[in-house]
């Protein structure tokens, strides 16, 4: 859809990169040390978990490599520690570091997938409500009002429970990951929808949208090409903060034992398993996954806070 063919793509990319570097966002980022630390931590954790199969010392799911004899090995700096297991092992002799890397991978995947799901649903419905107005808007927003009066975790539990009830056991086992993503993502749409609806109602009355109407551009095209891109600013902020919430929700569900099956242990599952051994002195089994969870959620949250302030023209 480029209007001019005269400039090259590489030139445009260069332009875009320079604009990104020269932007107010970069400026405010470089002036906030907390944000830089948070970004480094978050990025480190995300890269480490994505690359878990490459960097983890062992594969915690490969039963062949797990040695029950090595169970309850403490971290390496304690008496009885084994340099093979930097953060010790759990009750089945799995390397905690590897388990955490893999667990974080699952947690992040579930979190990110539920955010994408909630965002797609919410942005779509918000755009529809704001742009169409009238009874569609009234209906969608009343549904949102009702939904927001239930805690998200309750809805997630309900969806998970219903799924367990109606799906045959084997099917549910196979689908558990997707059920959880749906259960966590579904209640999240409201916030996206409300935000996008608000900015859509502002944008749709702007004069450039009127100009497109006068040209006879199809309303759907106007909504997608003109209104949506200009209404997306706040969505990025919500998505970042939502990612932290989704990771926590997943951990809570897994901690309660209704989340993912123990064969796919997320951080929450690891914490639950470790919880049993907390009082018998094997604290590392629950504390290290807990620390990983806190670091992940905190850093993502800090990034979200910064993004919200940086994108808010009033606070600049």
């Amino acid at each position: 859809m480029s209007a001019r063919a005269s400039t090259t793509w590489s030139g445009r990319l260069g332009d875009a990169l320079w604009r990104a570097w020269d932007s107010d966002l970069t400026y405010s980022f470089l002036r906030s040390p907390v944000t830089i630390v948070a970004a480094v931590v978050a990025l480190g954790l995300i890269v480490a978990s994505v690359a878990a199969p490459l960097i983890a010392p062992t594969d915690p799911f490969a039963l062949a490599t797990v040695d029950l004899m090595a169970a309850f090995t403490p971290p390496v700096w304690m008496e009885g520690g084994d340099p093979q297991f930097l953060l010790g092992t759990d009750d089945q002799g799995r390397d905690m570091l590897s388990a955490i890397l893999y667990g974080m991978r699952i947690s992040l995947f579930v979190g990110a997938a539920s955010v994408v799901f909630a965002m797609t649903l919410g942005v779509g419905l918000g755009l529809l409500a704001g742009y169409a107005g009238g009874w569609i808007d009234a209906l969608l927003m009343r549904v949102a009002d009702v939904q927001i009066s239930f805690p998200a975790i309750l809805i997630a539990l309900l969806i998970d429970g219903v799924a367990r009830g109606i799906l045959p056991r084997e099917v549910h086992h196979e689908m558990a990951l997707w059920v959880i993503i749906f259960a966590i993502g579904a209640p999240g749409w409201v916030q996206y929808a409300r935000t996008v609806r608000g900015s859509t109602m502002v944008e749709k009355n702007r004069e450039y949208v009127m100009a497109a109407h006068i040209m006879g551009v199809h309303p759907v095209v106007i909504a997608l090409r003109h209104v949506l891109p200009n209404a997306m600013g706040p969505v990025l902020v919500i998505a970042t903060i939502h990612l932290a919430i989704a990771v926590i929700t997943e951990a809570t569900l897994s901690f309660l034992g209704v989340g993912l099956p123990p064969t796919e242990p997320s951080l929450g599952t690891l914490i639950r398993i470790g919880n049993d051994f907390l009082f018998s002195g094997e604290w590392w089994i629950t504390i290290f996954p807990g620390v990983a969870l806190v670091l992940l959620v905190l850093s993502v949250n800090l990034l979200g806070d910064w993004l919200r302030d940086a994108l808010n023209p009033k606070l600049r």
């Binding site: 001019r4 702007r206 004069e207 450039y208 100009a211 891109p229 200009n230």
Partner: peptide
């Protein structure tokens, strides 16, 4: 307000 800020 009459020009889409994201378009060239």
């Amino acid at each position: 307000a009459s020009l889409n800020p994201r378009w060239r």
